[in-house]
Computed example of a mutant assay.
Amino acid sequence: MLTPSIPFPLPAETVLPDYGAGGIFGFARGLRNWLHDRDAAWPAGGVPSSSGTLVVVLVIDGLGDRFLCSEGVGSALHSARQGALTSVCPSTTASAVTTLLTGVAPAEHGLNGWFIHDRRFGGVIAPLPLVRRDGEAVEAFHLLPRLCPVPPMFFHACRPVNLISPVEIAGSRFTRHHARGAHVEPYDGLADLGAAIVDMADALAGSGGLIHAYYPGFDAVSHVYGCRSPEALAEFWRVDAMYSALVRSLSGRGVHLVATADHGFIDAPPERCIDIAPEGSLAQMLAAPLFGERRLAFCCVREGAWGEFEAWAAEALAGRAVAVRAADFLAVGLLGPGRAHPRLAERAGSHVLLMEPGWTIVDHVSGERVHDMVGVHGGLSADEMLVPLITTYC
C-alpha cells in the first residue's frame, strides 16, 4: 500500500494506488511469480500451486468496479465479484495494461500515460500505437527494447502461455514486444474471443498454463458515448453474456477464470475542459506539448518560467486541478515501486496537473488527429481508480 504522507493537496475524493496486495500491481506481480515458479500459488486469483492448473485471465478494458456495482447488478460478472482492486497511476490503458503484462509498476516500465515524453524518439509519443502526437510513426533502432526495457512476465515462464489479442493489435510492435514467451492468438469480435478462449483451453488441457485475453470494446464505446450511456450499457451486457457462455463452456474442466480491468471511467462535460490555446501565454511557457492524460497531465515547463506557471495554476486552476512539482510527485511513489525507468524523470516533466473530478485539460499539436471523448480516465477518482476482481472456478 502507498503509505507516505502526501505533502501536497490532492483532488477531491482521491483514491491512491495500492502497490501491495490491494491493487492490480500486486495482482500482476503474483501472476508473474506463479508463471515462473511451479511451486507457487497465486492468492489473488485463488489459484493453487498445482503444476497442471489452467488459468484464464480476462482483462476487460475500462470496466470500473463502481460501474459494475451499480449498473451491473444482476450480471454474471457482478455475481462472481470478489472485491475491488486499485489501478495504477495514471489510471489508463498504457500504464495499467503494461503493468498487467510485466508485473512491474509504471515507475519501472516507464509508460506513465497514453502519451510519454522521450527526446530520443521525437518528443511526445504514444507508445502503444508508436506514433508522435503529430501522427508520424515512430521509427528508431532497437525502438521497443529502449522504450520499454522491462521484459514481459511471459518471458522464460515455466508454464505455457497463450495471449489472445484483438486482430487489430495482435501483430503490433507493442504486442509482439510484450508477448515474448507466449503464443499470440488473434480474434475478431466478442463471439470469436469466447471461442478462442475455449479452443486454447482445449489445447492446454493436459499441461495447464495461462490464457491471457484482452477485450477493448467496452473502453472504446465508453470513450465515444459516455461511461453510463445506453451504448455502454448494451456493450456491458454483451460482455456479460460472453462471460456467462464462457463459464458454461469451461464448466467441469477445473479452470480458474479470473477477470479484472485496467481502469474505470468518468464522463467529462465539454464545459469542464481546459483548452490551452496554441498561441496563448500558457503554451509559451511549455517546452513541449502536454503528455500523460487529459485527467492527469505532465508538463515540461521552460526553465525560468516555473514561478509564472505556478502562479497561473494557483489562480486559473483553483477548483479545477492541483498543480504539483514532478519531483514531489515522484518522491511519494504515485507511479509505484521498483527500479526507476532510466528516462522516468524526463517522462514526468517538471509539473503534474491532477485534475479535479469531471475536469480535463487539452492542448493542440499541428497534424494531430483530435479525438472528442465523452468518457475519460487517467485521474485519481474512485470511478477511475477502482476495478473489480472477479473469479469463477469452472
Score class of each variant (00 low, 15 high):
3 T>G: 04
4 P>N: 01
5 S>E: 14
9 P>M: 02
14 T>M: 02
15 V>T: 12
15 V>S: 02
19 Y>T: 03
21 A>F: 06
24 I>N: 07
25 F>H: 12
29 R>G: 07
31 L>K: 01
32 R>C: 05
35 L>V: 04
39 D>C: 03
42 W>R: 05
49 S>R: 14
50 S>K: 09
52 G>V: 04
57 V>W: 04
64 G>E: 07
69 C>W: 05
73 V>W: 10
75 S>C: 00
76 A>T: 13
81 R>W: 08
82 Q>R: 15
82 Q>D: 10
83 G>E: 13
84 A>M: 13
85 L>D: 04
97 V>I: 13
99 T>P: 04
102 T>K: 07
104 V>P: 01
108 E>S: 07
115 F>P: 03
116 I>M: 12
118 D>I: 11
120 R>T: 14
121 F>C: 14
125 I>D: 12
126 A>L: 14
127 P>M: 08
130 L>E: 02
133 R>Y: 10
136 E>G: 13
140 A>C: 09
144 L>M: 02
147 L>R: 01
152 P>F: 11
153 M>S: 07
165 S>H: 10
168 E>P: 00
169 I>S: 00
169 I>H: 00
170 A>Q: 08
171 G>S: 11
172 S>D: 01
174 F>A: 10
175 T>F: 01
179 A>I: 11
181 G>I: 02
184 V>Y: 12
186 P>E: 10
204 L>V: 13
205 A>F: 03
205 A>P: 00
214 Y>L: 04
222 S>H: 01
232 A>P: 00
232 A>L: 01
235 E>H: 08
240 D>Y: 05
243 Y>C: 04
245 A>H: 13
246 L>G: 11
250 L>T: 14
253 R>Y: 01
256 H>P: 13
257 L>A: 13
264 G>E: 05
265 F>L: 06
268 A>K: 03
270 P>H: 09
273 C>Q: 15
274 I>C: 10
283 A>D: 12
292 G>C: 10
292 G>F: 04
296 L>A: 08
306 W>C: 12
313 A>Y: 01
314 A>C: 03
316 A>I: 04
320 R>Y: 06
323 A>V: 06
323 A>P: 03
324 V>G: 00
324 V>D: 01
324 V>Y: 01
325 R>Q: 15
327 A>S: 13
330 L>I: 07
330 L>Y: 06
331 A>L: 06
339 R>L: 15
347 R>K: 15
348 A>C: 15
355 M>I: 03
358 G>Q: 04
360 T>I: 09
361 I>H: 08
366 S>C: 08
370 V>G: 01
372 D>N: 11
372 D>K: 07
375 G>P: 04
378 G>F: 04
383 D>I: 06
385 M>L: 02
388 P>V: 13
391 T>G: 06
